[in-house]
Design a protein around this nucleic acid. Structure first.
Lengths: 236, 236
DNA sequence: GAGTGGTCTAGACCACAGC
DNA sequence: CTGTGGTCTAGACCACTCA
């Protein structure tokens, strides 16, 4: 045996997703159907799906079927911001959008978006508040204007999760995102908004958002109060 | 069916480990043996072990058997410190120990160790250097003196990984560790050592190390240059 | 009731380790 | 050679969903 059969099945499903034959939200063929079509036993198909489910590429729903997962921004490192009343429970962060405009991309931003310097972009600035309406973080987002034409329109209300509106209004399919976490210190503007002193520590989160064809459609920098952030993990 | 059989098997193995009947490094009974003793099929035992293996609590070795994992500090968030030459590849960090002493525990440290204030502790300060011998981080460790009596002895050479020596010399079994990541800024001393300016951003890593009986034996604070740290993740 | 995934069984054969 | 885990099969029954 060269390549395990369940690996073959796994690849088969994985490729269907990557090539766009199966898109997030789709129902994939049933286990028995796959086993017939690929001439393997149901157990082998199950093993392949087990792996993809563990990877969160698929999810099963008993009685209904197996679906391709939608991207889940609840997995963002963002969720480690803000712990309500020191009790440890996480709270929702509510966002406002005080400023947005259309502009020509600064070269450093364009580098991250992998477009030419000066390409038209839409810049959005948002502030995140905790449950007590205290500002916790500042988000700066740059979108490719050709992808989300009109997002700068002040009439357009922006929900906390930008991606829902982007997918719906502009027919863009968001596939995945990459995040990098590091630290920074507060400059005057940031300190003012967050109500802290200049030079206080910040957690900085950099994100690139990828749509279909794997083009990068957004670059985002989130800066938040370090005392409102803690990423916990266990080693064993 | 109330509780799936494979869950029962899973619990069975898990409890043997948690109660110390099986310790890290041990060979657990073979799959067929477990299936006989517990009156379930081999497939069911395999499913249980699959889960525990995915959790990294066990690992299998074909032809030999299944073992209980040793704690793996390579999973520490610490590994996201230092990226050699901006090329992206991670480098080893070499550590020196300029200072260690025995002291009475400050109340805040004792709180983390869950011992009474004033309990004898051994304090160790270490500096981490990258491949070019530039200081990248500072580590402050507080150990319970009653557990590692003599660790403050200057004659005793400390390897980069403290835990190996602790397990060997003091017959302590390290079970797990908890880490929390956040940000801080450099005070005068830290800035001096790391060769940066006062007020520059730092990544701060807090760790508690747990030994058998789940007692906490070490509290550690690592501060490193933010520009030498990046924790990357993918969302989908 | 028909179709889906969820659990469980019993047995086959292969690949690897160690004597 | 024996015993281990690794792969694969075929079939049973259960629990859930939806028409």
């Amino acid at each position: 045996m060269q390549r395990p059969l369940y690996k073959v099945v796994e690849e088969f499903i994985r490729e269907h997703i990557e090539l766009g034959k199966l898109v997030p939200g789709d129902l994939i063929p049933s286990e028995s159907r796959l086993s017939q079509e690929l001439n393997v036993s149901v157990g082998t198909v199950r093993k392949a799906i087990d792996i993809l489910e563990k990877e969160k590429l698929l999810f099963r729903h008993q009685g209904k079927g197996t679906y391709v997962s939608r991207i889940d921004f609840d997995n963002s490192l963002f969720r480690f911001f803000s712990y309500g009343t020191a009790s440890g429970e996480s709270t929702r962060i509510h966002k406002e959008t005080p400023y947005r405009t259309r502009l020509e991309g600064p070269s450093e931003i364009c580098r991250h978006l992998k477009v030419n310097p000066g390409t038209p972009l839409i810049y959005i600035e948002r502030i995140g508040y905790d449950e007590e309406e205290l500002p916790v973080l500042i988000e700066k987002c740059w979108w490719r204007a050709d992808v989300v034409e009109g997002l700068e329109d002040k009439e357009l209300h922006l929900p906390d999760l930008l991606y829902a509106i982007v997918e719906e209004k502009f027919d863009v399919r968001i596939i995945r995102a990459e995040e990098t976490l590091t630290a920074d210190i507060a400059d005057k503007e940031t300190a003012n908004i967050l109500g802290i002193k200049i030079g206080e520590p910040l957690v900085m989160l950099l994100r690139t958002t990828h749509a279909n064809n794997d083009r990068i459609i957004e670059y985002r920098v989130t800066r938040g109060r370090a005392d409102r952030f803690s990423y916990k993990t266990e080693i064993r």
